[in-house]
Amino acid sequence: RLTVMSLQESGLKVNQPASFAIRLNGAKGKIDAKVHSPSGAVEECHVSELEPDKYAVRFIPHENGVHTIDVKFNGSHVVGSPFKVRVGEP
């Protein structure tokens, strides 16, 4: 089962990169992540390998409000996905 680490749920800033990590815990497959902005825009997140069992997911929010992040592994949502994060002040 995958572990999502260091996902900041609030206090993110517009046009500043945000990232979190995913540990695969021995699982093999493909991570896919997309961020949905409050206006409905959908953007791919950048996924990069940090070490053999750990990946970083990076995105840049372009507007204030609550964004939804879909994180999928081999086509299925990971536990807790979709995640909600707040950009800007509430």
Rank of each mutant, 00 (worst) to 15 (best):
V87D: 02
V71Q: 00
S10H: 09
I69F: 08
P17C: 12
E63L: 11
G40Y: 12
E9M: 03
K84R: 09
H36Q: 02
E89Y: 08
S48G: 11
Y55H: 14
V87L: 02
G80N: 12
I31Q: 00
A27H: 05
N15P: 00
V87M: 01
C45V: 07
P90V: 09
I31S: 01
R23C: 13
E43N: 13
V57A: 07
V66F: 11
S48N: 13
E43K: 04
R86H: 03
L12M: 01
C45L: 06
A27K: 12
V4C: 14
H46N: 13
Q8E: 06
F73G: 03
D70I: 10
Q8Y: 04
G75P: 00
K72G: 03
P61T: 01
P17N: 12
K54F: 05
N25H: 15
S81L: 01
D53P: 04
S37H: 03
E63T: 13
L50D: 15
E44P: 01
A21M: 14
V66H: 15
S6N: 15
K28H: 06
G11A: 10
D53S: 11
K28W: 07
D32E: 06
E51D: 06
V78R: 02
I60Q: 04
K13N: 03
I22F: 14
G65F: 02
N25L: 02
L24E: 00
P90I: 07
G40V: 08
L24P: 01
G65W: 01
V42G: 10
V71C: 11
T3G: 14
S81Y: 02
A18S: 14
T3F: 08
A41E: 06
S6Q: 07
E49I: 09
T68V: 09
L7Q: 03
N15M: 04
V71L: 13
D53Y: 09
K13V: 04
E49D: 10
G29W: 01
E63G: 06
L24F: 07
V79N: 13
K84E: 14
A27T: 03
P61G: 04
S81A: 04
Q16G: 01
H36P: 00
D53K: 08
F73P: 01
S76G: 11
N15H: 02
V66C: 13
N74M: 10
R1I: 15
L12W: 01
F20T: 00
E49K: 14
D32K: 05
E51R: 06
P90R: 02
P82L: 01
G29P: 01
A56E: 12
P82M: 01
S48H: 06
S6R: 14
G29H: 06
S39D: 05
H36E: 08
G11L: 09
P82G: 04
E51N: 07
H67N: 13
K34T: 06
L12H: 02
S37N: 06
V87E: 01
R23M: 04
G65C: 02
P17I: 07
R23E: 09
N25K: 10
M5A: 15
F20Q: 00
V71A: 09
P17Y: 08
K13S: 14
K72E: 10
S19H: 04
V14G: 01
S6L: 10
S76Y: 09
D70Q: 08
T68C: 13
F73H: 12
E63N: 05
V87N: 01
S19V: 05
E51L: 04
I60E: 08
H46W: 15
R58K: 14
H67F: 09
K13Q: 13
E9F: 03
F59H: 06
T3I: 15
L50K: 14
V66T: 08
M5S: 12
V79L: 08
D53F: 07
G65K: 01
D53A: 04
E89A: 11
V78S: 09
L24R: 06
K34V: 10
F83P: 01
A33V: 12
T3P: 02
Q8H: 08
R23N: 09
Y55F: 07
R58T: 06
M5F: 14
F73E: 02
V42N: 07
D70W: 08
A56F: 14
G26M: 05
L7Y: 03
P82W: 01
M5R: 02
Q16P: 00
K84W: 02
H46C: 06
K28A: 04
V57T: 04
I22M: 12
V66Y: 11
G88D: 10
A41P: 12
K54M: 04
F73A: 03
C45E: 03
P90N: 15
N74P: 03
R86M: 06
S76K: 14
G88H: 05
D32A: 11
G75C: 05
V42A: 12
G65V: 00
H62I: 10
G88Y: 02
F83T: 05
R86K: 13
Q8M: 10
G75A: 12
K54G: 03
G88L: 05
C45T: 05
H62C: 13
G11P: 05
G88F: 14
V79H: 08
V57L: 03
G26W: 02
S39Q: 09
K30L: 09
A56Q: 10
V57W: 02
K28Q: 14
V57K: 00
V66L: 10
R58Q: 05
V14M: 02
I22P: 00
S10I: 04
A27I: 15
F83V: 07
A27R: 02
K30N: 05
I60Y: 05
V35G: 07
G88C: 05
S6K: 15
L24C: 10
K34H: 15
N15A: 06
V87Y: 01
L50V: 13
E43C: 01
A41I: 12
L2I: 15
A27N: 04
N74E: 14
M5L: 15
Y55I: 10
G29M: 02
G80H: 04
D70T: 12
V14W: 01
S48Q: 12
T68I: 09
E63M: 13
H36T: 03
H36D: 05
S19C: 02
E9P: 02
R23D: 06
A33Q: 01
E43W: 02
L7K: 05
F73T: 06
H62E: 14
F20L: 10
D32M: 11
S6I: 05
K28I: 12
I69T: 04
S48P: 09
E9C: 01
G26Y: 01
V79Q: 08
E89P: 02
A56S: 14
N15F: 03
I22W: 00
V35I: 13
A21D: 08
V66Q: 11
N15D: 14
N15W: 02
Q16L: 04
V35K: 10
V78C: 06
A56I: 15
A33R: 00
Q8D: 14
K84S: 11
E44N: 02
S48R: 11
V35Y: 14
L50H: 07
S81P: 01
V71N: 00
F20R: 00
V78G: 08
V57I: 07
P90A: 04
V85S: 15
E49P: 12
N25D: 03
G88N: 07
V4I: 15
V42F: 15
V42M: 15
S10E: 07
E43L: 07
V78Q: 06
S6G: 15
H67L: 10
P38T: 04
A41Y: 09
G80E: 12
K34C: 05
R86W: 10
V71M: 11
I69A: 09
V57G: 14
I69G: 00
E51H: 13
E44R: 08
A33G: 10
D32Y: 05
S81N: 10
Q16R: 11
F83I: 15
E49N: 07
H67E: 00
L12A: 13
E49M: 14
K30T: 10
K13M: 08
P61C: 04
R23P: 01
